[in-house]
């Protein structure tokens, strides 16, 4: 019978906390960058100019269809060879997850934008708005409400995907957990605690998100 003993893990709690902090930093960086990349890719994809929409489509497809671990290796090991630049684990991971999540966000944004009825475009155009004014004042505000649930879903997915950086020795939560498991010989306990940390923080994010969704639904008093 296995005897559970969490005390060595809890004694080194600070070690895991450093990892958790690094995970949060990486997720926040990748998420904010990913939203910008996603919006740019979505606009490029929706453009009528072929030199914009074709490359955007290729980037989106490549990053959606290849494993994120391989992408991370491209950036960490491949890019320094091709461009002869220095690459840190954090930089490689940030770039990878920005573009990877950006590709998914782009599809969410695009779907949200095209789901807005043609009549909204026409009404905005008919009072003399430019394309950008229509997009900013009329289309995006409505589209964002529709996109919000899938955006949250994707952000949570992103936070979990960042655990892959442990493979290029960035000291995220999972990497620190691995170290601690080897030090304490208590892998089951360590990874249970890690799972709990993810469970609590992601549940918290989901909770905040669903409250925001309800707020959205009330404001404006319309159901998309």
């Amino acid at each position: 019978m296995y005897e559970w003993d969490f005390s060595p893990v809890l004694a080194e709690g600070g070690f895991l906390l450093v990892g958790f902090r690094n995970t949060l930093i990486l997720t926040a960086t990748a998420l904010s960058g990913g939203l910008v990349v996603g919006l740019l890719l979505a606009f490029a994809r929706l453009s009528h100019r072929r030199w914009l929409n074709v490359p955007a489509g290729v980037v989106i497809e490549v990053f959606r269809t290849t494993p994120p671990l391989v992408q991370l290796f491209w950036f960490y090991f491949g890019l320094p060879i091709v461009l002869s630049v220095e690459m840190t684990p954090f930089l490689a991971a940030s770039l990878t997850f920005m573009i990877q999540s950006g590709a998914f966000f782009a599809e969410i944004f695009r779907a949200g934008i095209v789901s807005i009825e043609r009549g909204q475009w026409e009404a905005a155009r008919a009072i003399g708005m430019t394309y950008n004014q229509c997009m900013g004042r009329v289309i995006l505000p409505q589209a964002v409400k529709r996109m919000f649930p899938s955006m949250m879903e994707r952000s949570i997915e992103l936070m979990k995907t960042t655990t892959l950086v442990a493979t290029v020795s960035y000291a995220d939560l999972l990497f620190q957990a691995n170290e601690l498991a080897q030090k304490t010989f208590r892998p089951l306990e360590v990874f249970t605690v890690v799972a709990l940390i993810y469970f609590v923080s992601i549940s918290f994010i989901s909770f905040v998100a669903s409250r925001m969704e309800r707020r959205f639904a009330r404001s404006g008093e319309f159901t998309p």
Partner: peptide, 11 residues
Amino acid sequence: MVFQQFNLFPH
């Protein structure tokens, strides 16, 4: 222009 389907901005 006034449209058949009104096209008011719901937000």
